[in-house]
Amino acid sequence: MTQPDDPDARLAAAILAGLGGVENIEEIDPCTTRLRSLVKDPALVDSAGLRRAGAFGVMTHGRVVQVVLGPRVDTIASDLADLM
């Protein structure tokens, strides 16, 4: 369970919002330094908001969104799973 004062948990919540919320996410997988997501509607993804939240980069190809987070990606993915 994540703690409200945990910076990774706060980042996970911001990423969840930036990806359009739980309803917009079909799948999330951490991969080395990136969080790979399959979203229902790419128009709901806020790339600028994801960068403001701390992502190093955001790449979208169709419904696949990759959020570059660095080596903390596994921890953040775990926190995302707790929020979903």
Rank of each mutant, 00 (worst) to 15 (best):
N24T: 04
A14G: 05
L50E: 02
V45E: 05
V39K: 08
L11K: 04
R51N: 10
R36Y: 09
D29F: 10
D6K: 02
C31G: 03
V45Q: 05
C31M: 06
F56E: 12
P4R: 08
G54I: 00
I15R: 02
N24V: 04
R36A: 05
D41N: 15
D46N: 15
A48K: 11
V58Y: 00
L19T: 06
P30C: 06
E23S: 14
P7V: 01
P4G: 03
A9D: 09
G54E: 01
A14M: 05
V39G: 04
V45S: 10
D8A: 14
R52M: 05
Q3M: 13
D5W: 07
D8S: 12
K40R: 15
L19R: 07
C31V: 11
D8R: 10
R10M: 11
C31E: 11
G54S: 02
P30K: 09
P4H: 06
A55S: 09
A43Q: 13
E26I: 07
D29S: 12
A55E: 00
R36L: 08
G20T: 05
C31A: 13
R36H: 10
I28P: 12
D6G: 08
P42Q: 07
L19C: 09
A55R: 00
P7K: 00
A53N: 01
D8T: 06
D8F: 03
D29P: 02
G57K: 00
R51A: 11
M59K: 08
L50S: 03
A55G: 03
A55M: 01
L16A: 13
K40V: 10
Q3Y: 13
R52H: 09
G18S: 06
A9S: 14
Q3N: 14
V45Y: 10
V39C: 07
S47R: 15
R34N: 03
L16R: 13
D29A: 13
S47Q: 15
P30Y: 07
G20S: 10
D5G: 08
I15C: 06
